[in-house]
Amino acid sequence: MTSFFELTPSLELENLEVVYHHVATAIQGVSLRVMPGSIVTLLGTNGAGKTTTLRAISGFLGADNAQIVGGRVLFLGQPVTGRRPHELVRRGLVLVPERDKVFETLTVQENLRALVPGWRAWRGADRPRIRLDQVFEYFPLLADRRRQLAGYLSGGERQMLALATALLCRPAVLLVDELSLGLAPAVIERLMILVARLRDELGLAVLLVEQNAGAALAVADYGYVMEHGRIVYDGPRDRLLAHADVREFYLGVGHRAGRKSYTDVKQYRRRRRWF
């Protein structure tokens, strides 16, 4: 891979800390980087803090009485911590949420218009100018269902629509929350391949938050593992795939005597640098 040291990360978190209701720490000391033209995956089980991390980045924390109490979010080198959600979108930081990802009372066509794309090349970031026909080329299924109400789409089709609308916002960084949730393996595979295509053809930086480690690691370049609100391990895809604990607890591969909870496993020191 190219040398990353000359490039500014598209997205960087520095020691991010989020607290719920002023007392309960949700995530702590979270640092990660997403370089341009790469897919980074954030793995972890339910409640590990992945969605909180995404929310902290994209500015929706207010909803849960949560606050960012430490650390920074840097987008294209600029601090954007706590900026209003729609402003971030207009700068090119777009989230594909886990739930409520399409407008159900609007048709597919209208969904693709219910957005305000980034209108400036911010910080010189060359952002793809996606046209509607290009979107239909990536997602041919949507072209067939143009006039259908989004509420009647299947899970996979909804996910496609959500990705398509996110694309039309002209993102520099795409945050994807639980792409695989509730979908059949074949559909998941198709979607992951699509995300990889977007990285390759459009140079997008993608942060893929996933419980389904296998599917994510199939396309990711780099990965972070979160547990109890902290990053416990990170590394390039191959290292993750080879790691014994990752294999056991997130990939469901390998055997150990008896059932152990992952909390019994020695905590790995969080690594800051690329390996």
């Binding site: 729609h86 407008f103 609007l106």
Partner: peptide, 17 residues
């Protein structure tokens, strides 16, 4: 269309800029 979208799901509308 934005008004209809925002009326249905303000949060998602925000996430769409």
């Amino acid at each position: 269309i934005q008004m209809r979208a925002a009326g249905e799901k303000p949060l998602l509308a925000s996430q769409r800029g």
